[in-house]
Amino acid sequence: MPAIKVIKPGFQSTIQDSGRFGYSHYGISISGAADNVALRIGNLIAGNDENVAAIEMTLTGGEFLFEDDAIISITGANFQPMIESSQVAMWSTIKIKAGHILSFKNSPDNARCYICINGGFNVPLVMESASTHLLTSMGGLKGRAIIKGDFIQYHKKNIDNKTYISLKKEILDKLYPQRELFVTIGPQSNYFSDETINLFSKSTFTVREDSNRMGLRLSGPKLERIIEEDIITEGVSLGAIQISHDAQPIILFVEHQTTGGYPKIANIISADLHRVGQLKPRDEIKFSFVSIDEANKLRKEIEALISSDSFVRI
C-alpha cells in the first residue's frame, strides 16, 4: 500500500474523519475534524466520499514526502502550501508526483488546514471512526498526533481519469462569512439575568491560549450567575457555551467531556461550528442569538453549498 512519509509533523497534526457518533453514553465525544466543512469539501475535491479520513494540521503545517503519485486537495486555513518549490492552490484538485515533497508554513489568519487524498488514508477504525481522540489515545494513527518518521498509508485508486475541480471563490466566502458567531439560547439561560445575557451578546471575547480541541476558553466581561449552586450533572451538546465559577465562557468542542455541571448560556449553531474550528488564540469573537428556525435555515444553506454545483472544472 502506498504511503506518505512525515518529514515534519507541524505543531499538532492528527488523522480525522467526520467523527465518532453514537457512543456518548459510554462517555465518548464525537471527536472528528474541527472544521467539518473543510474536510467534506476537501474530500469531494480529491474524489472521495465526504467523510473520509484526512490529515488535520493545527496552526503550523508539516512536510510530507509522497512515495507514489497521488491526487490530493488542501482546504481550510491557508498554510501556504508548496510542492517542491512551487506554490499550489488551495481548494483545488492537485496531482503530486512520486518523490515530491508537500510542505507548509503557518497561517496568517485561521487555525486548521486539511490534506485529503484520493482513496483516503488507511488507519484502523475504532468504534466505526478513524478520528483521533488525543486525550484518551484512541483512533487515528496509534491514538496520537503524527510524528516525524511516520508512514501514513492510503488506499491506491486509479487516478488517471480523475476530474480536476476547484471551489468557486464566492462559495468560499459564503462558507466562512465575516460575521459574529450565531448561537441559540442555552438550556440553563435561567441561571443568568437578562442584563447578563445581553452583556454576553453585546461584548467581545478573546480566545485564550489554553484552548484546544476539547474546548475554547474565552476571556471577556464577567458573566455572573444568579443561581449559586451548580446544576445536576447532565449530558452536554457540541458547541455548548458553559459558564464556570470564574464567570468566563468555555465553548465545548469536538473532544469535549460528555457531561458537565456548569450552566450553559448558549450553544453555537450547527452552521457555524466549523468556524469555531478555525479560531486561534487571541482571536476576538462576538456572539449573536438566533432562533432554532433561523439556525436550521442557515444550516440548510451551508449543506446546499456542499455539492457539485459549487465547483468549476480546471
Partner: peptide, 13 residues
Amino acid sequence: QSIHPAYNSILVS
C-alpha cells in the same frame, strides 16, 4: 445520533 443519560436527564443528539 446519540442518547446520553445522566442522573435526571437524557440528552438526545
